[in-house]
Computed example of a mutant assay.
Amino acid sequence: MERNFARYRAFGHRLVTGFLEPEVLLLLDVLNSAQRAKQVTGAVAEIGVHHGKLFIGLRLLQRPGEKSVAIDIFGDQDLNVDGSGHGDLAKFVNNVNLWSSMDDVVIQQGDSTKLLPEQLRELAGGDVRFFSVDGGHTAEIVRSDMKLAETTLTDGGIVIADDVFNQQWPGVAVGTLRYLEDSGGARLAPFLIGFNKVFFTQPEHCGRYRAEVESAVAGKLRLATGASVFAGHDVGLVAPQGPVDLLRRSATVRSLYHRTYREMVRGLQVVSGRGGSAH
């Protein structure tokens, strides 16, 4: 289905309502290739599928027989304690069928915090290699969902956490930090931040995945990479880069800008009678 993934990444995602920066699909493509190169296999799962915008991308990276698990409260909106999304089961199924199929797709409707790891493994047919956490946005729900993802993640698996730095949902940041600072010790570490997502994996895989993304993004004029630290962990940064950003990075353009600015200031000083002669 990976050929269909390329089609979905190119334009299909625009036809599915939801909240997803399209560059995330590029990152998924890179990380999927890195996983496949090391024979990392397993299901994909998402908590909070909404209408399927990201889920379809994950689904299209699967091979025949590999499960895709959709977890959402859908019509049980009384469970939507923070109003962070309104999943629609009919729209979700229609969208998945439009771009893929419901073969090997498992739907779990209900409260994700009540879902036990062994139940999820049974639904997934084993461990999970890609796990998107985008359900409830309270600190308690986020921490619980991250623990579920950690417990069911295969070796070399990747968790994609949404809205960690979104100013509208501070509870997500609190819940993520509580997970990382858990007294029992978090078994996952962040390795990449970009496009409203934070990517996690087991610490021994962080450097390799970060390097794969940096290598793939290098040379792309519309994207810029960097490095930082999040909660004590080294992370890569990926961000959009427009024409103004490119110009700012050019030493020649910066020099020209400063020289022009100085000349403009001198001209204004002369006109106002304060400058005397320019030096």
Rank of each mutant, 00 (worst) to 15 (best):
P64G: 09
I158H: 07
N95R: 03
V133A: 04
V128D: 02
A231V: 09
A189T: 15
L192Q: 10
H50Y: 12
L180C: 06
V24E: 02
R266G: 08
V93F: 00
R121S: 07
K114E: 12
G52Y: 01
T154S: 13
G126W: 02
G171A: 08
I47W: 01
G226M: 08
I107C: 05
H137E: 03
L120K: 06
S33E: 14
M146V: 08
S100P: 01
F195P: 04
A278F: 03
F230G: 03
D245S: 12
A278I: 11
L27H: 03
D182P: 01
T151P: 00
R7L: 13
L148M: 09
E204N: 08
E212D: 13
S272W: 00
V128E: 02
L223N: 04
L79R: 15
A45K: 02
L116D: 01
E46M: 04
R262A: 12
I141P: 00
G236R: 09
A227K: 14
A211M: 09
E46Q: 10
A6I: 12
P240Y: 06
E140A: 15
T152W: 07
S215Q: 14
E263V: 07
N80L: 08
D104E: 15
S255R: 15
G87S: 05
A218Q: 10
F55Y: 06
M1R: 11
G83W: 12
Q241C: 15
V253Y: 09
V270P: 00
C206V: 11
V96I: 13
D127A: 11
N80W: 01
F11S: 14
G226I: 11
K38V: 07
E150T: 12
L223D: 03
A278W: 09
S183C: 05
P243G: 13
V44G: 05
L31Q: 04
V40W: 00
V93I: 14
V159Q: 02
L79F: 09
G232C: 07
V172F: 01
T260W: 05
V265I: 15
G65L: 10
P203G: 11
G185H: 02
W99E: 00
S68D: 03
P117G: 11
K147H: 12
I107V: 15
H86N: 09
L120G: 06
N94G: 07
E122I: 14
T225V: 14
R259Q: 15
R121Q: 13
A124H: 02
H233W: 07
R210S: 11
G276T: 05
L98K: 13
G75H: 14
